[in-house]
Design a protein around this nucleic acid. Sequence first.
DNA 1: CTATGGTATGAGGAATTCCTCGCTTTCTGG
DNA 2: CCAGAAAGCGAGGAATTCCTCATACCATAG
Lengths: 214, 214
Amino acid sequence: MPSRPSPHQPRKTPQQQRSRQTRQRILDAAARVFADYGHAAGTTDRIAEAARLSVGSVYQYFPNKDSILLTLALAHIDESAATVRAALAVTATPPTLMHWLPATVAAYADLHTRDPRLHKVLFEESPRPPELLARFHQAERDAADTVEQLLRRDPSLDLPEPARNARIVVAVIESLVHRYVSQQPGDIDTRQLTDEIVDLLVAYLHAAQHARRR
Amino acid sequence: MPSRPSPHQPRKTPQQQRSRQTRQRILDAAARVFADYGHAAGTTDRIAEAARLSVGSVYQYFPNKDSILLTLALAHIDESAATVRAALAVTATPPTLMHWLPATVAAYADLHTRDPRLHKVLFEESPRPPELLARFHQAERDAADTVEQLLRRDPSLDLPEPARNARIVVAVIESLVHRYVSQQPGDIDTRQLTDEIVDLLVAYLHAAQHARRR
DNA sequence: CTATGGTATGAGGAATTCCTCGCTTTCTGG
DNA sequence: CCAGAAAGCGAGGAATTCCTCATACCATAG
């Protein structure tokens, strides 16, 4: 038997302009379909239909259903990371807590309240391949590193363990926003959520500062 | 056509002792299977096999696959609620924060680190029917009410909005433990997680107490 | 205009899965 | 011991889903 070319090999490089647009059409359609139907019922046929393509065409751009999910999820992580990086790029010297904390929390919360249903499908319902987890953890470490620098440079703060504190700050923001997103909307608004997280973290950081005196 | 008896009607009342054991065998098997295979690949055939029964027998006890999931999830919620209630049943007067907060957080964390994989399947991967959400929210409200009473009765605390603070305390515990559970294990241990959550909440509550003076 | 290869089609094969239903085995009260 | 009820069985129907492949369209370079 002659070795046939591996199936599941999506087109390597889109050649024509049309192809790039089609790829994006598929991703947009998939986002809608997954948000509306969930992971299991978000079938490739439905995605094709929503993109006004045939299933065959979808499989020219993605080797299988999971790769579509993965592409969407990675894009979301990258977008989040960029947003957070921007919010943490404080120019003020010194960078006081209030210069960056509320803005960062608000930005992160906004990003996640935009399409809660899709977010849930991408990061809870669906299996998370190692590649996705790696990218996610990397993004979190990057954010924690930046936060640590900001904490160190704040003269009104004198933290014994800024690295640890930074990790906790990131974890708290991430998990509380996450919790808010995965609940039914309408409980509290983003603004209130932001205020509560900020209050919590400010109290925590101020207390941590006196820790060694205890 | 004669009206045939509704299908999907599990046996109303187990008559024999054997039947009650069988039902429990199915639930135990399902817990293992779901933990090992996830929601989608946790098939009824596999559950039957794990319970050393035939599929037909499984369907004598549960009308469909989802009802097995629901039963497991409700049981978990009830168990959690009972554990939290017990931890919050402080007899000491006055009930200082340190009398109940660390124990409660530790109990809740322990409960969830016991079988993280199953927990994820039950509460993240699977669709959550309204009935489940209702029970969950009720449990949270009950916990928040009890916490509020404890906060009010603590003379070293003078909180302007104990109800709001209690809700936040519950939300923080819930979401941080949840986050810890849904991550790869081995990052930090339960003890450390507990300490961090307690530090965070103690700082928050002490700061909230002075809020009105600001 | 035509040849070449990029792009699109969609019926249907292969695999899975949920659940049913006619039947058998096991139990128990009289 | 026996009759009727409870419990258990498991092949297979019906429905879905992922993905392939033989075929056809279309854009552009020469």
